[in-house]
């Protein structure tokens, strides 16, 4: 076994994405829910890079670059919201967050 087909990377990406979805559904803490979104984004990035390798084009890498930038922006705003939530409510449990205004 000396060469790795692209499909291995794609399967790994799919598995990671699936685990990310499971984490998103199962986790109860706002922060960990947020982290599972990052996990899914990472899985997608892996697929992008694998596709870029399969086609020998850098476009896939450019997309990954954009995904990473958007993830950074999302984390900045999202975590600011999480900090506000933590200051204004006693629990970080997503199930307790059932009102838009309080």
């Amino acid at each position: 076994m000396s060469v790795i087909p692209i499909s291995y990377y794609l399967v790994l990406s799919a598995v990671l994405f699936g685990l990310g979805v499971v984490a998103f559904v199962f986790k109860r803490n706002v922060i960990t829910v947020f982290m599972s979104v990052e996990l899914m984004l990472n899985a997608v990035n892996l697929a992008f890079v694998a596709f870029a390798r399969a086609h020998g084009q850098v476009d896939g890498l450019a997309y990954v670059f954009f995904v990473i930038v958007v993830a950074a922006a999302e984390a900045a705003v999202g975590l600011a919201i999480v900090v506000m939530l933590a200051q204004n409510r006693e629990s970080l449990n997503v199930e307790r967050m059932n009102s838009l205004k309080f």
């Binding site: 790795i4 990377y9 790994l12 922060i31 947020f34 982290m35 990052e38 990472n42 990035n45 892996l46 890079v49 694998a50 870029a52 390798r53 890498l61 990954v64 670059f65 990473i68 930038v69 993830a71 950074a72 984390a75 900045a76 975590l79 999480v82 900090v83």
Partner: peptide, 29 residues
């Protein structure tokens, strides 16, 4: 894995931005 796929720049950015910035933000929060 990105390094294995030959995407050096993306591997560096992955560590720099994801592990080095975003996750540090998470840990700090």
């Amino acid at each position: 894995l990105y390094l294995l796929l030959g995407a050096e720049f993306i591997a560096a950015v992955q560590i720099l931005v994801y592990a080095g910035a975003i996750m540090i933000l998470f840990v700090t929060v």
